[in-house]
């Protein structure tokens, strides 16, 4: 076997090893991602099972614990329905006239 042939075989072997490393890295990363998703789904099934509700971008339940309750409406606006706001369905059913 000539020196040139040995070099070609070595280069091919090296390329094979590099391709394998890249391929298995990609597979491992995908598996890791899938495992993480599965784990999260077990923890929060109502959030992560698409396409019903996507994961909340706002951790609402955490800010619920920290912010104060304003007992007055934040903004006072005239209680007039706007002309560009057209109610198509308007069903309000309550069973008392009493107010708090």
């Amino acid at each position: 076997m000539t020196k040139y042939e040995i070099m070609v075989i070595a280069a091919a072997a090296a390329a094979f090893v590099v391709i394998n490393i890249i391929m298995w890295s990609i597979i491992a990363a995908k598996e890791k991602k899938a495992r993480r998703r599965e784990l999260q789904q077990q923890k929060n099934p109502e959030i992560t099972v698409a396409p019903i509700l996507e994961p909340s971008p706002v951790p609402v339940n955490t800010y619920a614990e920290t912010e104060e309750v304003p007992l007055q409406p934040a903004k006072e606006r005239p209680r007039v329905k706007r002309s560009d706001f057209i109610l198509i369905d308007d069903i309000v059913i309550v069973h008392t006239d009493e107010r708090i």
Binding site: D84, F85, I86, L87, I88, D89, D90, I91, V92, I93, V94, H95
Partner: peptide
Amino acid sequence: SICVKNART
């Protein structure tokens, strides 16, 4: 009690 509203805005 129930509230069902649907509007075009």
